[in-house]
Simulated scan of single mutants.
Amino acid sequence: MLNNNLQTLMVSMIMAVGVTLSGCDSTKEDAQNPEASAASTSEQSAADTSTQTTPTKTADLDGATAQQGIPVKYEVASWSAAPVDPLTVDALDDIKSTFGKVVSTDENSLDYASNSASKYRFMDTDAPYLDLIDSEKYLELGWYYANPTDSKKEKELSQNHAKKSYMLARQLMGDEGGKLIADMLGGQIIKNKTVGGQKIELAKCEFYSCMLVLNKADAQTDNS
């Protein structure tokens, strides 16, 4: 029994000495090659930093992209400034003639103030519109105001509508009427102002639409 205990003790001591020597050898190797140890540590640190700082690409969840287009240019300065035949707001047939051929008529329409009126359309239903609305109190010009992302054809029609409105405004209000259209196309909103002897109830171009509303009552003062 004693011999067995001594044998077991000796084996344990031998194993402990082996582990100690192995640890010493490893420490000695690190001490003899400090550059290799430092390089290993540096590589690990760089890898950790790269993992932390590399940005993660975020997917476009809705897949949408902002539409961009070319705004419509209205070269009003180059439009004809030749003399025109003056018209009054009651000369409906002559006014319609300036806009062209009437495609359809709605006798049960409403004017700017929701009064009974007649609407004259000069374009097909599915085309950018050009309208006249006539009532006892108001004469209204309305046309499609093209968006930058519209097609080339839609933009051309919008420009043509603006040119016709420019000509009609000059017939009704002289050169001041032409300037009024230019101001509208430039983003100005005109309200309750007398222009060229006509009372302007509202004139503006926004949200795909231009509208010029003339009050048929004779203007006595300039409310600008």
Results as ranks from 00 to 15, higher is better:
141 L>S: 13
98 T>Q: 05
150 D>E: 02
95 I>L: 07
81 A>L: 15
104 S>L: 00
133 I>S: 00
75 E>M: 02
129 Y>T: 00
116 S>N: 11
64 A>S: 14
149 T>F: 11
81 A>K: 15
139 L>P: 01
104 S>V: 06
70 I>V: 08
99 F>A: 03
136 E>G: 02
147 N>Q: 06
65 T>F: 14
91 A>G: 07
143 W>Q: 13
130 L>K: 05
60 D>H: 04
119 K>E: 02
89 V>F: 12
143 W>L: 15
87 L>E: 12
112 Y>H: 09
59 A>N: 10
154 E>P: 01
100 G>E: 13
108 N>Q: 12
68 Q>P: 01
79 W>R: 11
142 G>Y: 08
136 E>W: 03
89 V>M: 13
127 A>Y: 03
84 V>W: 08
104 S>N: 14
67 Q>V: 14
103 V>T: 07
113 A>E: 10
144 Y>M: 07
152 K>A: 11
99 F>N: 01
103 V>E: 05
118 S>F: 02
108 N>G: 13
118 S>P: 01
72 V>P: 06
92 L>M: 10
84 V>M: 12
124 D>A: 15
141 L>V: 15
94 D>M: 11
155 K>R: 05
148 P>E: 09
137 K>H: 09
91 A>L: 05
159 Q>P: 01
75 E>L: 03
123 M>R: 13
148 P>A: 11
88 T>F: 04
64 A>P: 01
112 Y>G: 00
147 N>C: 00
135 S>D: 15
153 K>Q: 14
110 L>D: 06
157 L>D: 01
144 Y>V: 12
150 D>T: 03
69 G>E: 10
130 L>Q: 14
91 A>C: 07
128 P>E: 05
149 T>A: 13
133 I>P: 00
91 A>T: 09
132 L>S: 11
107 E>I: 03
137 K>E: 10
90 D>Q: 11
149 T>D: 10
133 I>F: 01
113 A>D: 14
141 L>I: 14
75 E>V: 03
144 Y>L: 05
70 I>E: 11
125 T>Q: 02
87 L>F: 15
154 E>A: 09
150 D>A: 04
83 P>F: 04
85 D>G: 08
157 L>H: 00
62 D>I: 08
108 N>W: 12
132 L>H: 07
158 S>A: 06
131 D>V: 00
159 Q>W: 02
156 E>G: 06
90 D>C: 09
66 A>H: 03
79 W>K: 08
128 P>G: 08
110 L>T: 07
127 A>D: 05
85 D>F: 12
72 V>R: 03
62 D>Y: 13
108 N>R: 13
71 P>T: 13
108 N>C: 06
95 I>G: 03
153 K>E: 11
137 K>F: 06
103 V>P: 03
79 W>H: 06
153 K>G: 04
76 V>C: 06
131 D>A: 00
109 S>K: 15
106 D>Q: 05
133 I>L: 00
126 D>E: 10
72 V>F: 05
156 E>T: 13
147 N>H: 13
62 D>C: 07
60 D>I: 02
127 A>M: 04
143 W>N: 15
127 A>E: 09
130 L>V: 09
142 G>C: 09
163 K>C: 10
78 S>I: 04
153 K>A: 08
161 H>F: 04
78 S>A: 10
145 Y>D: 11
70 I>M: 00
80 S>Y: 04
146 A>M: 04
151 S>E: 11
87 L>Y: 13
93 D>N: 10
115 N>D: 11
86 P>S: 01
123 M>T: 15
88 T>Y: 06
74 Y>Q: 05
